[in-house]
């Protein structure tokens, strides 16, 4: 692997009490929010991570920036990265959050937010901070006057641009965008997505784009990782995965997405809802909803089988793997 960012069996587990007092005793149970995720992001690539709520995509993002502790190995530029990391390394992976309203400090103007960051991380000499703020605000295509207003008087799209400027202030190599346009109106979404694409090219960023929205992922990503209940079910190039999905879950997900060019058919591609992450089935996590499940699926976890243009965690692919 020659990735800038490499994940090897990365898992995130939380202890949750079985009862209110459980967490103080021995009866606590473990919730595996992210389970053995393995992939690598080459420099300049854009990786989409897609899945429904509770699939662990946001927890994965938090692990990557060190906000939650994890098991397994995470490497950045060849060196192992722990959840507790130096300022220097923290800077390398930055994130733009979903809700720009609550992820910006409401008491600070964008200038104050950016200046503080630039100062603490010693990005530029103190007397150049103002110039750098102006550069950053220009980078995200906002007028300079926006630097000195309170976040609450900005529109959602403008706030998201400030969130982007904040992430870019630290000159990261990897930018994680976690549902960064989900809270915006479609007409505003377009301009933010375009801006992220442009900045990725201009600054040669490696992009991890996390979304529940298949259309947005298709538009933004080169490769896609599909997650279901914490596990990775499929990985491949966007074109291949969207046009020829191998895992039954990916197939169901794509068949469920409403499309402009297609009417609703009577059959529902998939029934039921995901089981509780606290009470996972022993075999494949999707087996209970899978129209193609057989005995083995209910007892054993399928590994990731690689195929011509990617990999998928499904026993149906085991033949082609040998």
């Amino acid at each position: 692997m020659t990735g800038l960012l490499e994940l090897e069996n990365l898992s995130v587990r939380f202890n949750v009490g079985g009862s209110l007092f459980g967490r103080f005793g021995n009866s606590s149970t473990t919730l595996t929010a992210v389970d053995s995720v393995t992939f690598s992001a080459e420099p300049g690539r854009s990786i989409g991570i897609v899945g429904e709520s509770g699939c662990g995509k946001s927890t994965l993002a938090k692990a990557l920036i060190g906000l939650v502790s994890y098991e397994g190995v995470l490497r950045f530029d060849g060196a192992e990265l722990k959840a507790r990391r130096t300022k220097q390394l923290r800077r390398q992976i930055q994130m733009v959050f979903q809700d720009p309203g609550s992820s910006l400090n409401p008491a600070l103007t964008p200038r104050q937010t950016l200046s503080e960051l630039l100062k603490i991380h010693e990005m530029v000499p103190v007397d150049a901070i103002d110039d750098r703020c102006a550069e950053l605000i220009d980078l995200v295509e906002l007028p300079a006057r926006v630097l000195d207003v309170q976040p609450r008087s900005l529109s959602g799209g403008q706030r998201q641009r400030i969130g982007l400027a904040r992430a870019l202030a630290l000159e990261p190599s990897v930018l994680i965008a976690d549902e960064s346009v989900a809270a915006l109106d479609v007409s505003v979404q377009a301009s933010i997505l375009n801006l992220i694409s442009d900045l990725k090219e201009e600054l040669n960023l490696t992009l991890l784009f996390i979304s529940h929205d298949l259309a947005v992922i298709r538009h933004m990503a080169d490769e896609v990782v599909v997650m279901y209940l914490g596990g990775m079910v499929e990985h491949g190039s966007v074109a291949e995965v969207f046009d020829d999905p191998q895992h039954p879950y990916t197939q169901a997900l794509l068949a469920s997405a409403p499309r402009l060019k297609r009417d609703l058919t009577d059959e529902t591609p998939i029934i039921g809802e995901p089981p509780s992450p606290l009470d996972l089935p022993p075999g494949c996590r999707f087996a209970g909803r899978c129209p193609q499940a057989f005995d083995l699926c209910h007892t054993e976890r399928p590994p990731l089988y690689s195929h011509d243009h990617g990999s998928a965690a499904c026993f149906l692919l085991s033949d082609s793997n040998e």
Partner: peptide, 16 residues
């Protein structure tokens, strides 16, 4: 034309 759509691949989105 401003929202990305799963079955329409446009090079660049046109916002409003």
């Amino acid at each position: 034309h401003s929202a990305p759509v799963i079955d329409v691949t446009e090079e660049r989105l046109v916002g409003i």
